[in-house]
Structures are given as C-alpha cells and as structure tokens.
Design a protein around this nucleic acid. Sequence first.
DNA 1: CAGTAAGCGAGACGGTACGTCGGGTCTTACC
DNA 2: GGTAAGACCCGACGTACCGTCTCGCTTACTG
Lengths: 185, 185, 185, 185
Amino acid sequence: MGKNSNLRDRTACVILDAAGEVLSEFGNEANMNQVADTAGVGRATLYRYFPSREALLKAMSQRVVENVGKRLEEANLEEVSFEEAIHRITRAILGLSFPSGALIEEGIGFEPVEAKRLIMDPICKVFEKGAEQGAIRSEFSLELLSQLFIKFLRGGSLLVSKRISNMEDTAFAISSLFLDGVRNK
Amino acid sequence: MGKNSNLRDRTACVILDAAGEVLSEFGNEANMNQVADTAGVGRATLYRYFPSREALLKAMSQRVVENVGKRLEEANLEEVSFEEAIHRITRAILGLSFPSGALIEEGIGFEPVEAKRLIMDPICKVFEKGAEQGAIRSEFSLELLSQLFIKFLRGGSLLVSKRISNMEDTAFAISSLFLDGVRNK
Amino acid sequence: MGKNSNLRDRTACVILDAAGEVLSEFGNEANMNQVADTAGVGRATLYRYFPSREALLKAMSQRVVENVGKRLEEANLEEVSFEEAIHRITRAILGLSFPSGALIEEGIGFEPVEAKRLIMDPICKVFEKGAEQGAIRSEFSLELLSQLFIKFLRGGSLLVSKRISNMEDTAFAISSLFLDGVRNK
Amino acid sequence: MGKNSNLRDRTACVILDAAGEVLSEFGNEANMNQVADTAGVGRATLYRYFPSREALLKAMSQRVVENVGKRLEEANLEEVSFEEAIHRITRAILGLSFPSGALIEEGIGFEPVEAKRLIMDPICKVFEKGAEQGAIRSEFSLELLSQLFIKFLRGGSLLVSKRISNMEDTAFAISSLFLDGVRNK
DNA sequence: CAGTAAGCGAGACGGTACGTCGGGTCTTACC
DNA sequence: GGTAAGACCCGACGTACCGTCTCGCTTACTG
C-alpha cells in the first residue's frame, strides 16, 4: 500500500490541482476534458479517480474543508480566550489561498458532512465556551450566531478571493465588527 | 407598449415563475424542457423569450434584484436614521420569499450591473450618510463595511431560505450585531 | 363563383408561380417563408390556399400535368399517324418551359392519378392505335413500351430544362430514335 | 489502415445499410433518429460518420454509383462490340438490387462528380468507339445520345425498382429499342 | 352612406428534426 | 496492471422550419 497509495494520492492530487486551476479560470462551464488535459492525464484516468464530475467537485471541496479544518486545529482554539479564538478563526479561513475557493464557496459541489465536522463543530465549541464564560450576549441562540459568523466569514473570503479587499484589513474588520456586536456589554 | 407588451410580460413572467419552481425543486440540473413544460409553453417559445439557459437564469436573477431594489426604494432609506436604515435594509432583503432565491444567491446566473445600481448603491448611500453623521466608527473603509454588510445579509438570507433560522430572529440578529459592531462608541 | 373564384385562382396562380421560382432556385430546401415572400403574400394566406407543403408541391405538379395534358389534347393525337403522334407528343412535352419542371420531374411532389389520366392514357391510346395498325413491333408489351417512352421523355426534358441540350435537337433525337427502335420492320 | 479502417468501414456500412432500409421504407421523411436506431448506433455516432443528413444521402448515392461503376468495369466494355456493350451496360444498371436505389435515382442526394467519372465516362467511351466503328448514325451528337441513353436507363431502372416491369424484359426492350434506333442503317 | 363580413399580413405559438456538445462507459493498445 | 487514446451511447442545448392560431386592418358588399 506504500508506493501505490502514494502514486494514487499523487495522481489524485495532480488532478485536483488541475481541476482547481481550470475551474477558477473557466468557472462551472469547464469540462472534464479540460481538467484531464490540464492534469496531463487521460480522461479515463480522471474518471478512474473521480467517477463523476460531482465526485470531483466534492473532492475539491473536501480538500478545502480539510485544509480549513487543519488550520483550525493548529489554531489551538480551545486554549485561548473567546476573542482571540474569533480572531484566529477569521485569519485561518481568510488566509487560505483558495485555488478555486471562491467557486466552491459558491456552492458548486459542497460536501456538508465533513464541513460540519471539521469546521462548524470547532467553531461551535468556541461559541459555547464563550457563552459559558459570559463573553457573549445571551439574546441570540448560539446556533444562529455561529451560523451567521460562518456566513460572515464566507462573505469576507469572497471579498478577499475576488481581490475586492485585502486579507489583513478584511480579517481585522470582520473580527472587530463581529466581536463588538456579539460581546456582552 | 400596451397589450402586446403586457402579454409579453405575462408570458415571460409565467416562464420565470416556472423556472423558479423547477430550479428550486431540481436544482441546477433542471433542463429547459422541464421549464417549458411547467410553464405550459413550448420549448420554442421558451427560447423565443430567453435565447439561452444563461439568459433565463440572468432574467430570474434580475427579477430578484429588481424586487429587492423596489423594496429598498419603498423603505425611504434617505429619510431615517442610520440605525433604522440598517434595520430596514435587513428586513427588506431577508423578507423576500425567494422562489429560487437560494439558487440565485448561490450565484447561478447573477447579473452584477443592475445589482450594483439597485442594491449596492442605495446601501452605500446609507453608509455614507451614516459616516457623515458620525454614526460609524471610522477605522474601516466604507467600501469594506458595506461589502461586508451585503455578504452578511446574503449569508443571513441563505439561512432563512434554507429554513435554518426564521426571518424575524435572523434579521434582528444581523441588524443588532452589525450595528453594535459598527457603531461609533 | 365568378369573381371570387377568379381571385382565388389568381392568388393561387401567383403562389404557384412563386413556388416554381423559389423551388427552381433553391431546390427542395426552399421553405414556405421564401415562397410566401416571393409571392408577395403572407404566410397565412399561403397556408390558406395550400394547407401544407406537400399540398403545394402536389398542386405545382398538378399544374404541370394539366399543361402537358392540354398540349396533348391540342395535338389531335387521334387523327394523325403513329409516327406523327410520337413526334407531337415529344415536342409537346419537351416544349414546356418548366419553371420548376425538372424539380417536379425529379418526383418531389408527384401526383400520379391525374398524370395517368391526362398524360399516360392519351399516350397509351396512341400506342394501341399504332399496334392495331401494325406500326409497332409486337415483341414488347404495349405497357412496357409506353412506360419506357414516358421515361425517355422525362429524361429528355431533364436534359432540356438543365440546358444540357436544346429542345429541338433533343425532341428530334428522341422521336427518331424511339421510332426507329420501335417501328415494325 | 488495417483493423481501424475496417472497423470504420464496417460501422459506416452498417449505417448506410440502415439508412437504405429506413429511406426505402419511410421515404425522404425518415429522420436521423430512425437511421441511428435501425443501425443500432447512437445518434452521435451517426453524426460522427456522416456530419449531416445531406452527407449521409450523398454517401448512399456514392455507394450506388460505385456499385454501378464496379459492374461496368467488370463488364469489359472495351473489348466487346458496341451492341454487346450496350446490352451489358443495360443489364449492369438494371440488374442492381437497389436497397434505396429508386430514392437515390429520384435525386435525393445525388453526387454528380463521381457519377460522371464512374458511370458516364465508360459509357461515353463505348459511344465513341461505336461512332469510330461506324455503328452509330451520325446525325446526333454523341453527347446527346449518351445522355439520352443514361436517362433511358434511369427510366428503366425506375420501372424495375417499382416493380412495374421485370428486369429481364425491361433490359431487353431498352437495349433493342435503343440499338435499333441508334444503329446506322 | 354607414355597418358588417370576409380575406389578408403579421407574427406568436407548439411541435419536431437537426446538428453540437459534454458526461460517463468501455475497449484497444502501450509500457 | 495501470494508463492514454478514443469510440461509443445518452441526453441537453440551441436553431430552424412546419402548420395553427389570433389579432388588427383593409376592402368590398349590403341595408
């Protein structure tokens, strides 16, 4: 399972990179041929790795989700204050250099289960801890707050990936705004 | 512009309604035949009104944009306080009963020019007036703030249209959070 | 039935002329719009007169058949010798200035019943009289001979209408060849 | 050019056979779907081989033309007397079991260039040789005579393919009539 | 002379065939 | 054995034409 698995992973990775490239250039109209050609791979091989277009998109989304999840894990969210956690989450998500992040974020092939486990759950925990510590005003449900925060981040990441604003300012603005709004006063 | 125009508008409207229905049921895989059948119209007529799939989606998006624009216009944003304007904008956008709002919000066929004129510009004016009156903290550019607010609203409208949260709570939460965050203290 | 009928006939005639013109220019790919436009008539009127494309073609064919029939009738075939009758038939058929004769002869919309009555029957009679008078060799069935003669004429008229050879020479050649071949020796 | 070419040829042949079958059954109203279905082939494949309806008809015509050409070649026209050559040509052409011969003869998709090279030219040579040998009366141009002969044959083949007369009688009648007519006396 | 009925042009409409294109399956040959 | 090349089937897309229909407009007939 050593080399083979590695080779498989490497080929899959090449394909995913190519797909990211093609999708971010041509949008959702990109076809499987372009992906295969860009990956330097036959169309058959492409279908062997990803049995359908949807599967490919899902895998791309999955990879992004895993990236974000890893960043969140590295951020040690459990061990810092609520405010700092919010800052870190924001930077973690906005800081991604999405190859086709925006596209996937537009909902092309989103895979919700893993996204929930790897992204939503850690964020929810942060909100729960913040609530326990009395750092969050209690008028709104945690569910709603965390969902809104996520959407806020999605919006911000779109701004960044479309070069409408730079990452630093946007992250700072999002964190500040959200914290000021959400903070118990 | 009399009867003929009305008839054209009526047929176009029937088609757009059907498209909304089909798209919200089958998602982006819905085909033109389904739309035509649901509209009770021949495929040729469908193409006579909307010369391509993309044109149809654009028109749907356009209609949503115009709806929002009309609501914003009726909201008298110019004559109320900044805070009240933010509340009204939020309710205006979240209060839409999107037939396929979510789909369009996902960016399937978005038409940016009209959206800017009818939605972005009034909102930007509100922010500008708020800034002049000193109601907004000056650390962030107005551009960034208004963009973030829009994305925030988009996120919220997704939550509502996907029944994750109800409209009233979401609108109130968005307005409150955003105002608390944005307000000059 | 007087004026009305005349008007009807005149309009129908204009349409048939236009159809002949269009068909001989564009071949069988000509569409009804072209015919209507060339006739200076609305498409609806065209369909009022000829309820289908096929009906139009049939009518065109019918008109040619009637023309030929009239010529044959004027030729007094019954009262001349077999040889002279053959000559007259040949000239009658080749002498038509087919507007779209060739096309119809190609079989686009041929109406066989009238053709038989107006064209085949007189010709067959000529052959029968010729046989009775012993002017025709008896080895071949009259049926076959007359059919072959018709086809021979069709071929010749194609040559003429496509300007491959002129009418006089062709008619003379056909009559002479056929008579020499068919004559009892 | 080995197997691949053979496969291509085989598939093309299957399609042409199917087209012949469908066309002779449904006439010129047969659609490409029927052809593809009858051939047991997808419509896309049909269009890969014959990029348009017209191309398919042309290919069918071409195949008939080649068949006739081959028969004429096998007939050794150069080495027999003029009379025998005329007999052989007649039998060669009338003897074809047209799958959709009549249709093509009706001129649906006729390809004139090859027809001239493979059919007209050998026949013309026969006439030229006949003229040199003094077997043909000199009053008519060879061009006209050969054209008329061709048309005569077309007429006869129509009679045969439409079962109006049988092949043997028709071929004998055509040859005899034409020879008697054309022969120098 | 006014009213009406019938024919007409214009053009929208439903339906269907055509030709293109992309997705997904499969075979063949290569390495 | 995995891969590249590519043929194949399926079905959607967008176009064009056919035949039907409705709408006003003109025109000619009628009271």
